[in-house]
Design a protein around this nucleic acid. Structure first.
Length: 419
RNA sequence: GGAGACGUCGCAUAGUCAGGCCUAGUGCACCACCCUGCUAAGGUGGAGUCCCUUCACGGGGACCAGGGGUUCAAAUCCCCUCGUCUCCGCCA
């Protein structure tokens, strides 16, 4: 949710942000109107209530013979108070809904436009070249006995898979390496719930335009999370926390995505699947330090990709491709040889105070007043990375070489052999 | 799934049976000052969250797990939901 005072005092800033995203600037005006209606309704109710409270005291102190007359007088007042209270509550709900419809205000420098309007910040590493015809990750996965799509489909349907043998171990190794990295950087490891309540899912901003991406359990009214960001953002909901030192968490969880609207896209292999694992960094921080922290998260991600020997680029996504909560987002995309393209391996967003305001997570500022914290999130390892690792480090016989940083987590194994 | 007990402003509790001196008391912890003096004690005062209003000082309102109802008036009475604990049942 955006800051209501910004909405009131600087609506043009918000309208501009909405335009950059390709979202409606008119939402700003309806939110301002709803806010005005809300404040007027509250004013009317409180005036009446104050009158009623004063009367209540007189009734309580009145003598037996005076009471009936007083009671007759306030009867109408009681009805008026009740009506005013209901109006105020309705106005509050409407105003809140209008404010929540507006997406986060994008930060300075975020490019306008949609998915294709990103800006490449840098390219790192050399793209691999082969003196043989390179195989794609699924073929390598099958040759090494690591990926079984057919049985995944048999048991659970399209976009499900089994990782087995060396690939199963590789994923755990990758996640363990990432966990050690974040531990060294002061993150608290967490294993998080993957089913969350509607208000938490809504608070993180995932129930907007892309809510059809999310699995919902009708019977229990719970949502399956597509990232542990959701559970980590909800962790401190409705709390006043101390961010003198930023709170840094790393959530390890299975992630579920419906992938609605991506029919026919990435149908081969494990690039786009309904279920995968991810280690996600999440930070609660003083808003004035959020930007610097964002850079630190990117640096951690780049360190991982570099040490895994991957070629990648860092892009800043355009406003229209940001989630509704994000004010700035960087993606790291690894070069995937058989696709001749960069594919997203990580994403890291600065959500400024947007999520925290929706979820009621505050801290005490210098003057002792409570104010919303800033939140950031970013991927540090996920199943999709196996694609780039396998393809980049493949050998002529269909085997692939294990990057050195992962070998300690695989009992020293240096090559995933062709079976 | 069944039965019972419970849910109060950081923690611990009073208040609920008998609705209105509850503007929710007390202890601990916390902050400031004073006194004293040595790994402490005592005194005075302050202090919750959210909203409205005000340049500000201030003023007003809401909040006793959440929601609804009864009433002039609800922490207190009634209903629903959620959660915790105990016992029983069931179970990967």
């Amino acid at each position: 949710m955006i800051d209501p005072s910004v909405l009131r005092e600087n609506p043009d800033l918000v309208r501009h942000s909405q335009r950059l995203r390709g979202a409606s600037p008119d939402l700003v005006d309806s939110a301002i109107d709803a806010d005005r209606v809300r404040r007027e309704a509250i004013g009317r109710f409180e005036e009446l209530r104050a009158e009623q409270n004063a009367f209540g005291k007189r009734v309580a102190q009145a003598s037996k013979e005076d009471k009936p007359a007083l009671l007759a007088q306030v009867k109408d007042l009681a009805a008026a108070v009740k009506a005013a209270q209901q109006e105020a509550a309705a106005a509050e709900t409407a105003s809140d809904a209008a404010a929540r419809a507006i997406q986060n205000i994008v930060l300075d420098g975020v490019p306008a436009g949609g998915e294709d309007d990103f800006v490449t910040l840098r390219e790192v590493g050399t793209r691999p070249s082969f003196d043989f015809e390179p195989r794609d990750h699924l073929e390598i996965g099958e040759i090494t006995g690591g990926i079984d799509m057919a049985r995944g489909t048999k048991v659970s349907g399209a976009r499900f898979y089994y990782l087995r043998g060396v690939a199963a171990r590789l994923e755990i190794a990758l996640m363990s390496l990432a966990l050690d990295r974040v531990l060294a950087n002061g993150f608290v490891p967490m294993i998080t719930p993957t089913l969350v309540k509607p208000e938490i899912m809504a608070g993180t901003g995932f129930l907007g335009a892309h809510s059809d991406e999310i699995y919902h359990l009708e019977e229990d009214d719970l949502y399956l999370t597509g990232t542990s960001e959701v559970a980590l953002a909800g962790y401190h909901a409705d709390e006043i926390i101390d961010v003198t030192e930023p709170l840094r968490y790393a959530g390890w969880s299975t992630c579920y995505r419906r992938e609605a609207g991506s029919y026919g896209k990435d149908t081969r292999g494990i690039i786009r699947v309904h279920q995968f694992n991810k280690l996600e960094m999440f930070v609660y921080i003083d808003p004035s330090d959020a930007d610097a922290e964002h850079q630190r998260l990117v640096a951690l991600q780049e360190g991982m990709l570099q040490d895994l020997g991957l070629s990648y680029r860092v892009i800043e996504t355009a406003a229209g491709d940001l989630g509704s909560s994000a004010a700035r987002k960087y993606d790291l995309e690894a070069w995937v040889p058989t696709q001749g393209a960069f594919r997203e391996l990580t994403s890291t967003s600065n959500c400024t105070t947007f999520q925290a305001r929706r979820l009621g997570t505050r801290f005490r500022g210098e003057n002792g007043k409570t104010q919303p914290v800033a939140t950031l999130n970013g991927t540090i390892a996920t199943t999709r990375w196996l694609v780039a690792i396998m393809e980049t480090h493949q050998n002529a016989d269909g085997s692939f070489t294990i990057p050195e940083v992962l070998r300690p987590y695989l009992g020293g194994l240096d090559v995933a052999a062709a079976l």
